[in-house]
């Protein structure tokens, strides 16, 4: 077993996996990694089962050391990672030696969430069958909270080091591109005034810096809802809700399980993994899409990674 020590965690780094199932009817958040593609890839590069818990680092400012050689991989956002001042290539495995420090600086504008997987996996107790942290519920992960300098994490197994495994360049996403989010109209969509529906599907919106693991507020033309208060509804992953001032908010893994604002529909899950990586002020548009077609695409994605 290797023991890893967090030496810096200034913003928000937490243990995450696929999140919880079968708990939303109890009021618990789903939680889990924001970008499943980068998460699966990180585990794949170190030879783990792809759903093994990892450290999710938001915007950087994080470093870690180890007491034994450990094979690691870093994917997702580019954080200009270095080991004792030597650059580390993301999207491929590497070995961190004892006495050296892996340092994630701030994001370069290429993504917001990065994923650090270690060969053998972190020894984290499961809480409702998941290692995912939900800080507001004081649940899961490392004692129910984000990581802090001085925290110690063990790997489950001491695995032999493995040769470098790299990601083909065409499989590394570009996180600085404008986005078109495919959305399945639903929930309250039909009850919005026609003009609001038109505004929503024809205008350019942009991500903002008002974002965290629960959701992303967008900037752009406001969407008017004229029907007053509505009953709360259960909230699926990727819902676009419209707040009282007309702002669209895309809800992510750590959203609450119920929501009382009118909702326009649900963003394709694969597009959501790109959206979370978009730097504030990235332009985006919504295009209506058919759930059955998106389903086939999502099933191919999970089949490829062997995730049920």
């Amino acid at each position: 077993m290797a023991k890893l020590t967090v030496t810096r965690a200034d913003f928000f780094a937490s243990i995450q996996d696929m999140g919880r199932r079968r708990t939303q009817h109890l009021g618990l958040a789903q939680s889990g990694v924001a970008d499943e593609y980068s998460f699966f890839r990180a585990n794949y590069l170190v030879g783990n089962a792809v759903t093994t818990p990892v450290i999710e680092v938001i915007t950087g400012f994080f470093s870690i050391s180890t007491d034994r050689p450990v094979t690691m991989a870093l994917t997702g956002a580019d954080m200009s990672a270095r080991v004792n001042n030597a650059p580390v290539r993301p999207w491929q495995s590497f070995v961190l030696m004892p006495g050296k420090v892996l340092e994630l600086k701030n994001t370069t504008g290429m993504g917001l969430f990065s994923y650090l997987a270690v060969k053998g996996g972190f020894d984290i107790p499961l809480c409702f069958k998941s290692a995912s942290t939900v800080e507001r519920e004081n649940l899961g992960g490392y004692h129910g909270r984000k990581l802090a300098a001085g925290d110690e994490l063990s790997t489950i197994l001491d695995r032999p080091l493995c040769p470098t495994l790299a990601t083909p360049p065409d499989q590394i996403p570009q996180f600085d591109q404008p986005l078109t989010l495919r959305i399945m109209p639903g929930y309250d969509h039909d009850n919005f005034p026609e003009q609001s529906q038109r505004t929503f599907f024809t205008s350019e919106y942009a991500t903002s810096n008002k974002m965290d693991r629960t959701g992303i507020r967008l900037s752009g033309p406001p969407i008017i809802w004229q029907k007053g208060d509505i009953l709360s509804k259960p909230v699926a992953l990727g819902v676009v809700q419209i707040t009282n001032d007309g702002t669209p908010v895309v809800l992510l893994k750590e959203r609450q399980s119920t929501g009382g604002y009118p909702m326009m529909g649900v963003v394709s899950r694969l597009d959501l993994f790109r959206l979370v990586q978009a730097f504030p002020d990235t332009p985006l548009r919504f295009s209506p899409a058919d759930p059955v077609r998106l389903r086939a695409e999502l099933m191919r994605f999970y089949n490829f990674w062997g995730v049920a």
Partner: peptide, 21 residues
């Protein structure tokens, strides 16, 4: 079933990928 969530007048049902095979 992955989630079955009753909330006031609506019930959300989320299923595994396998259920659509």
């Amino acid at each position: 079933w992955v989630e079955v969530v009753p909330v006031f007048a609506d019930l959300l049902v989320t299923l595994s990928a396998r259920s659509f095979s």
